[in-house]
């Protein structure tokens, strides 16, 4: 497990800050990639923020009504080191099942 700090991205040309309108997740939630995290209001528009990672929401760095500057931490996630790349998924490393059992012939 490693931490991943998601900072407020520059949501529109030259944006400096945004106000948190609401969170759709709470600390301790597991989120999927692109799952809606919440909504922020910029000087131009209300923007929905999809999750950049799959993982556990560890900290929400601001409350609704707070102003967050671009580049400041918005959400800290706990993510697995094993993130799939652009295709595929991380295989599970469970002990594989088997049906065959060996017999040693003693003669």
């Amino acid at each position: 497990m490693t931490e991943f700090v998601f900072r407020l991205p520059d949501l529109a040309e030259g944006l400096e800050d945004a106000e948190i309108v609401e969170w759709r997740v709470k600390e301790g939630d597991r989120v999927e990639l692109n799952q809606l995290l919440g909504e922020v209001q910029t000087s131009k528009a209300a923007v929905e923020i999809p999750s950049p990672r799959r993982g556990l929401v560890k900290t929400l760095h601001a409350l609704p009504g707070d102003l967050v500057r671009v580049g400041e931490p918005l959400v800290t996630f706990e993510v697995e080191d094993s993130q799939p790349g652009v295709v595929g998924r991380v295989p599970q490393e469970a002990k594989p099942a088997r049906r065959v059992h060996l017999r040693i012939r003693r003669d």
Partner: peptide, 15 residues
């Protein structure tokens, strides 16, 4: 290849 196929081959060489 899974465990069953591998173990089956092992059984064959043992036998």
């Amino acid at each position: 290849p899974d465990l069953d196929r591998i173990l089956t081959a092992v059984q064959k060489v043992l036998d």
